[in-house]
């Protein structure tokens, strides 16, 4: 392969890989918003918590981070279930209409963001930790790929695929999809929202934790890593469309590639500028996602 072409292939492949991880960062948030109209801006903070749980688990117990992932998922899912019961259910009860609930839910999740982020700073201080990775680089033909990232991406895509299957094949998943399309219709066919909402909120948090666990295998972590990932998730959701899981998968990969190519063409200091530009432009021009008809 020509050197020029090879360099670009490297850029695209690394964009694809990080994009796969972005997808799983976004899926949980998208499920929560799509089903319940809760835009949980503390999403990134729970991702950060997942990253720390993984870090401490591997440091203290000495197991592989990948073996800890199911546990991280469960811990955060249970947390999410409880948070929904304590915060969002009472909020839904007193809100006069869905629009007001949405606004208040947004403010409550800002409150959660402050609490979790600063509690983490208190507990773990602002130091950078971990991030050394454990796997060898992988050769794909002439391309060299970071092994940890590749594995993380594979897991992320597997989880994303599992989510799609869960939504399509299981009764609960079908209920979630039905509710996303028509809240009234779904309640008519006997779906119990009181169980489904906390469940999906929990799954959303669990997925955030899982994404954090994946990220902790190759990036250094600190209590402030969360917020940028919330923004990443928002951008991905905007690209793929609110409430669409497969949209999030495509949106994540798309954002990964856009960022990688954009940074390659300009400079790394422009990465955030570029991300926000994409976010704002898509939200203004195509608020229902790039793929909406």
């Amino acid at each position: 392969m020509a050197p020029m072409l090879e360099a670009w292939a490297n850029v695209i492949v690394s964009g694809l890989i990080i994009g796969g991880i972005y997808a799983v960062v976004a899926v949980g948030l998208n499920l929560q918003y799509g089903l319940m109209r809760i835009l949980n801006v503390a999403h990134g903070e729970f991702l950060m918590v997942g990253a720390y749980l993984t870090f401490w688990g591997t440091t203290l117990i000495g197991t592989s981070p990948h073996l800890l992932m199911p546990a991280v998922f469960v811990v955060l899912a249970v947390t999410g279930f409880a948070l929904h019961a304590v915060l969002f259910r009472p909020l839904a009860r007193v809100a006069p209409n869905p629009e007001v609930f949405e606004a208040r839910g947004l403010i409550v999740s800002f409150g959660l963001m402050f609490i979790v982020q600063n509690a983490a700073l208190l507990a773990w201080d602002a130091d950078l930790r971990g991030g050394q990775g454990s796997l060898e680089a992988v050769r794909l033909g002439t391309l060299v790929v970071n092994g940890d990232k590749l594995l993380a991406c594979a897991i992320a895509l597997a989880v994303g695929g599992a989510m799609i299957l869960w939504l399509r094949l299981t009764l609960v998943g079908k209920a979630v999809r039905a509710l996303m399309q028509s809240p009234v219709g779904a309640t008519l066919v006997g779906i119990d929202v009181r169980v489904l909402h906390p469940l999906v909120f929990g799954v959303g948090l669990g997925l955030a934790g899982l994404a954090g666990a994946l990220i902790s295998t190759f990036y250094t972590i600190s209590p402030s890593i969360g917020q940028p990932y919330t923004v990443t998730a928002l951008i991905v959701i905007t690209l793929g469309g609110f409430g669409s899981v497969s949209g999030s998968l495509i949106g994540g990969v798309l954002l990964g590639v856009i960022e990688a190519v954009g940074v390659e063409l300009t400079s790394p200091s422009l990465k955030m500028l570029l991300s926000y530009l994409v976010f704002v432009a898509v939200l203004i021009a195509r608020p229902n996602g790039l793929f909406a008809r």
Binding site: I107, F110, G111, L112, M113, F114, I115, N118
Partner: peptide
Amino acid sequence: IALGLLLI
């Protein structure tokens, strides 16, 4: 943290 709690 207090700010967040107050908000919620």
